[in-house]
């Protein structure tokens, strides 16, 4: 799932080499922490958070297929 978020984030930002995703496994839920270059934050969040919401929708659907819950944290 890390690879999915990495691919999406890299496609959205201007500095793909600065994209980092860390997986934090919890009991109920796996947290994916996304870090991008500060100037790219807007690119992964979007107007009124629309881009972030869309990424979360895709992540949620992919997680559903694995019967696991994932959440996306975008770190500043």
């Amino acid at each position: 799932m890390k690879e999915l978020i990495e691919a999406i984030a890299k496609a959205l930002v201007d500095n793909p080499d600065q994209v980092q995703v860390r997986t934090v496994e919890g009991e109920q839920v796996t947290v994916l922490e996304l870090r991008v270059h500060p100037s790219d934050l807007g690119k992964v969040i979007g107007k009124q958070g629309r881009t972030a919401r869309s990424i979360r929708t895709i992540l949620g659907a992919a997680g559903m297929k694995l019967k696991k819950r994932f959440t996306l944290e975008i770190l500043e």
Partner: peptide, 24 residues
Amino acid sequence: DSDLLVEANGELLNALEYIVLKAV
């Protein structure tokens, strides 16, 4: 997985469309 795409009024379909069109 077509059903997954169109459920909740096409939420996943719309999300994919938005992300991909933004990314390109």
